[in-house]
Design a binder for these strands. Sequence first.
DNA 1: TAAGTGATCTCT
DNA 2: GAGATCACTTAA
Length: 178
Amino acid sequence: MVLRADFYQRPALVVARELLGKFLVVRKKNGRVVAKMITEVEAYDGIRDKASHASRGKTARNAAMFEAGGIWYVYFVYGMYEMLNVVVGRKDYPAALLIRGVEGVHGPGKLTKTLGITRRFNGLPASRVTGLWIEDRGVRVPRSAIKTSPRIGVAYAGPVWSKKHYRFFLVRHDSIRT
DNA sequence: TAAGTGATCTCT
DNA sequence: GAGATCACTTAA
């Protein structure tokens, strides 16, 4: 089942947990469809989140974060890597989830490279139409399989926001059944 | 541990 | 326009 806009248009921390165990699906140029289970995400929640690109207001780059949930926010960093986020929450409340890992691919930069995801998806809906979407394939994730930690690479955000447990990841993959 | 890489943002 | 920074990765 393809996740629809109403799934995303809820609080970031709620959607973040529920995204674990869902499948990121991409239709490649050759028509082939690749689906991989999401295993690691990070939340960026609101304008007051000092680690978020949106903390200093709306710019050309982060505009997608201010839209209603259900679209992609893809940006380019370090001269090399595309970062894939899905926008969540309501319109004009900037929030997004960075997809950091899927099964077999650990790291947001590697993930986009492996799956061929680039900024061309920025601002587009997560749907079959655009060729990049997320599905619920019935995987049940027990709460005990989810761990949290501070987000990676956000020391600049100061002592409060850099330490929030906004990173969610799966452990004990073998305990998860379809 | 540090370099690589270029878009983006914040000053001049 | 210039300079600093950066939600990363890899090789050492």
